[in-house]
Nucleic acid binder design. Structure first.
Lengths: 173, 173
DNA sequence: TAGTTTTGTAAGTGATTACTCACTTATGAA
DNA sequence: TTCATAAGTGAGTAATCACTTACAAAACTA
């Protein structure tokens, strides 16, 4: 059984992802979570602290996805894995990724840490694959990665398998 | 000289793009614009009406960019033009596009009209270019387009010329 | 010039905001 | 049992929210 703290975290993530951070009041979170509003501030220093806790938990799950890159032996396999990450984001984690991507457009972004790490790994992969301008090709894939994630998180799900195939084909994977 | 109505529109766009729609109060808009808060509601029915007026003005400017597609004779020239649109968004229109992309992650999106039109044109272009699966290739370019725009609007400006070149090269343009 | 409309302001409105406070209840160790 | 701490509540707080009202200045029209 989930603790009330966990319920608050889940509910806040759900509402932040659906309605946006500023558009979600602590009163609404408390009501939907079935707890008193005061309890939110017992567990978290303030509304920002609640958001930070959510992003910290989500980042750990995201990190797990990226750590798997190293498990693949060849650069080709690693690239194939990276290019399909956006399409395999678990349903249960959709809210977190949606919130992460929505927050990118506000002042403070939470995704720089993760994305810069991915960028570094991509450069290494393209070096191994013998590409001319590895940094540039990595930047392109980062851009493609953002586009894929946006498509998965916002658009309909029907053509995604085909698009995924097309992208892998473009990199001879 | 700009009318106070125009100053309100400019100021609201600036703040909405920087801080987000819900995080920007009508009081802050009035203060930065140097007008009374009441004047906002004299010119616009409510805060949503103000946003709608901004998006309507911006959409016209955006439409002008897309209408230029038809000015090019060959499918190749049209595709070349489309692929560089995100890189040539005027500085003065950055706020509008940033707001448009930020709002995509909230409930109601304003960009479907524009993007669906672009999608249709891309399918036609790929038909003319003899591509196998034109709808799929168009979806891919739409996704790429989103990634490019995001990169231009949020990231540093230094590598963008090179990325633009790379993308054109990938389509033999 | 007189009358009408438009543009603008200052001071409000009730509702909602994030957050606090005093207090009660549950948990667990000695 | 006792005592300390953690978990939880409900009723507050001042500030801010979107929006309204009453009224004045300015601009247009006859």
């Amino acid at each position: 059984m989930k603790s009330k703290k966990e319920i608050i975290l889940d509910t806040a993530l759900d509402l932040f992802a659906k309605k946006g951070y500023t558009a979600t009041s602590t009163a609404k979170i408390a009501k939907q979570a079935g707890v008193s509003e005061g309890l939110i501030f017992r567990h978290f220093s303030n509304k920002d602290g609640l958001l930070n806790a959510i992003m910290e938990l989500g980042k750990e799950k995201g990190q797990a996805l990226f750590n798997l890159i190293q498990e693949f032996d060849t650069a080709k396999d690693q690239l194939r894995y990276i290019l399909q990450i956006p399409f395999q984001i678990p349903i249960e984690e959709h809210s977190f990724w949606k919130l992460l991507y929505a927050l990118k457009w506000q002042a403070d972004s939470y995704d720089e840490e993760i994305s810069s790490q991915l960028s570094v790994e991509l450069v290494e992969i393209f070096k191994k694959l013998g590409y001319e301008n590895c940094e540039l090709e990595a930047s392109y894939v980062m851009l493609l990665f953002d586009g894929m994630a946006t498509s998965v998180l916002l658009k309909s799900h029907k053509d995604q398998k085909e698009i995924q195939q097309l992208i892998l084909k473009k990199y001879n994977l």
